[in-house]
C-alpha cells in the first residue's frame, strides 16, 4: 500500500508498504529516520516513542496504516518542534531542543539507545507541565526503560531542562 503522512512537519510518502508493517518500521527502514529505536518491538520499553497528532505512542505498536494522513514527530524533529513552540527561527536550522541539551549536559546519555524515546516523552511532559515534581517526572517517564544510567542522571536532565525553561534560557 501507499502511505501518506506528515513527519516532523514535512509531507512524506512511502510505497509498497506491507500492511503488517509498524509505523516504527516505516520510519526506520522506509523514510530514513532511524532515530526512533527498536529495543523491544512489543510496546514495553518506550525506545520507539514518537508523537502521533501530539500524543506520545510506542510507534512499534502503531500499524503503519493507522498513521495515514496524520502528523508524526520523532526525535529527529524535536529541535524544530521546540523552536516552533518558542515561536522562533525557521525549521531546518540545526540546533538542539532544550531537553536534548540538558540530557548531554547532565550526563544522561550512556549507550543512548533509550535516549530518543525518553527525549520525546520528557519533551511532551515538560510541554504539559513545565515545573514537574520528581514524582511527576518518574510517573511520566515510567514507560521508558533505560539499562545504563539507573535513571539518576535522567532525573537530573529533566530537572535541568525544567529549570532552564523557567529561567527562559
Amino acid at each position: 500500500m501507499r502511505l501518506n503522512l506528515t513527519v516532523n512537519g514535512r509531507p512524506r510518502e512511502a510505497d509498497d508498504v506491507w500492511e503488517g508493517e509498524s509505523l516504527l518500521y516505516v520510519l526506520r527502514e522506509r523514510l530514513g529516520l532511524p532515530g526512533s529505536k527498536n529495543a523491544c518491538e512489543q510496546g514495553e520499553c518506550g525506545s520507539c516513542t514518537v508523537r502521533l497528532d501530539g500524543v506520545p505512542v510506542c510507534s512499534c505498536l502503531v500499524a503503519a496504516g493507522q498513521a495515514e494522513g496524520r502528523e508524526v514527530v520523532t526525535v529527529e524533529g524535536l529541535a524544530d518542534l521546540a523552536r516552533r513552540r518558542s515561536g522562533g527561527g525557521s525549521p531546518g536550522e540545526a540546533e538542539l531542543a532544550p531537553v536534548q541539551q540538558a540530557f548531554i549536559d547532565a550526563g544522561a546519555v550512556q549507550c543512548g539507545f533509550c535516549t530518543p524515546g525518553l527525549l520525546v516523552a520528557a519533551d511532551e511532559m515538560l510541554e504539559r507541565d513545565p515545573d514537574p515534581s520528581d514524582a511527576d517526572i518518574r510517573e511520566a517517564l515510567s514507560g521508558n526503560l533505560c539499562r545504563c544510567t539507573g535513571y539518576e542522571k535522567i532525573m537530573d536532565a529533566v530537572r535541568l531542562a525544567a529549570a532552564r525553561g523557567s529561567e527562559g534560557v
Binding site: 526506520r28 532511524p34 527498536n38 524535536l78 538542539l96 548531554i104 546519555v109 543512548g112 535516549t115
Partner: peptide, 23 residues
Amino acid sequence: ESTLRPDGTLKVTGEFAYSSDMW
C-alpha cells in the same frame, strides 16, 4: 574533568548509527 561525551549530540538527535540502523 567531567567533559561531555563526544557522541552526545549524535545520540540526542537520533543520528548516531547503531548496528540496527545500518542500511
